[in-house]
């Protein structure tokens, strides 16, 4: 297999030694079918065991290895050497504090995922324990794409609104809330409305659309948020006009 020499420029930061992040160069002989993650693993195994980064599945599903590759939020296991120039810059995800090297602090987004109540809320009793809900394929289709989010947080790294205002709930968490709102089994939409329609919720989004462009799983959080805005506006007018609101 052909080998191509890639100059990796990796952001390093050791909070116990460094005042601020800096870049370290590694020259990596890459096989032609490698992803950037393979190049990082080569650095870790052969060149510098002190480099810190997160990874696990190497198959685009665990969401650990989101990083900035040449300025673009990406999964390193899904970004291939063949599609990149000879010089590749790898940085930790934008808009997050850097814990160490390529590892960012995720506390804020973990709390936001929690905040939107991402679970089935029932007002009526569910079917008996051995009976499932009936859900047509059409009803599943409504929210299926939104279930594909792997929480890699690339969308937060791409979102300037989140960068400017950390109170914004942000793309992945809002999309997750919408996923449950659209699920025919859920009755928690009105519970979530207070959080989502608040000023840190959907209205903080100015539809830059970057989140959807970088999403490695094509979840399209930007679309979800616009749908929620339309939903929210309809709900507002229904209430103003004294019409019955959404039953759930």
């Amino acid at each position: 297999m052909n080998i191509r020499q890639i100059e990796l420029e990796v952001m390093r930061y050791d909070p116990e030694k460094d005042e601020a992040p800096w870049f370290q160069q590694y020259s990596v002989p890459c096989q032609e079918d490698w992803a950037i993650l393979d190049a990082l693993n080569y650095v870790k195994d052969e060149l510098d065991t002190t480099l810190a980064y997160r990874w696990s599945c190497h198959m685009m599903v665990c969401g650990s290895c989101g990083m900035m590759i040449n300025g673009e939020p990406s999964l390193t296991c899904k970004t291939f050497v063949r599609d990149l120039p000879d010089k590749v810059r790898v940085e930790p995800l934008e808009n997050f504090p850097i814990e160490r090297d390529l590892v960012v602090v995720l506390d804020d987004v973990m709390q936001k995922l929690h905040q939107v109540q991402p679970y089935i809320v029932r007002k009526d009793a569910p079917p008996q324990e051995d009976k499932e809900f009936t859900q047509s394929r059409g009803a599943l289709m409504k929210f299926k794409q939104l279930t594909m989010c792997i929480n890699c947080m690339c969308c937060y790294a791409a979102c300037p609104q989140y960068g400017l205002d950390k109170n914004f709930i942000g793309p992945a968490a809002l999309a997750l809330a919408h996923r449950y709102n659209l699920d025919s089994r859920d009755q928690g939409k009105s519970d979530r409305l207070d959080i989502l329609a608040d000023h840190d919720g959907v209205w903080e989004c100015s539809f830059v659309g970057a989140c959807s462009e970088v999403c490695p799983k094509h979840v399209d959080p930007a679309a979800a948020i616009q749908q929620m805005k339309i939903d929210g506006a309809m709900e507002f007018w229904k209430q103003k006009l004294g019409m019955p609101g959404d039953k759930s």
Binding site: Y119, E129, R137, L140, F143
Partner: peptide
Amino acid sequence: APRELVQLEHWGCPWSRDDDGSV
């Protein structure tokens, strides 16, 4: 086994569906 898989369905697991809406 079936009971646990139904439990997961109640918790919102997006199982693929048949024409009649069952899992």
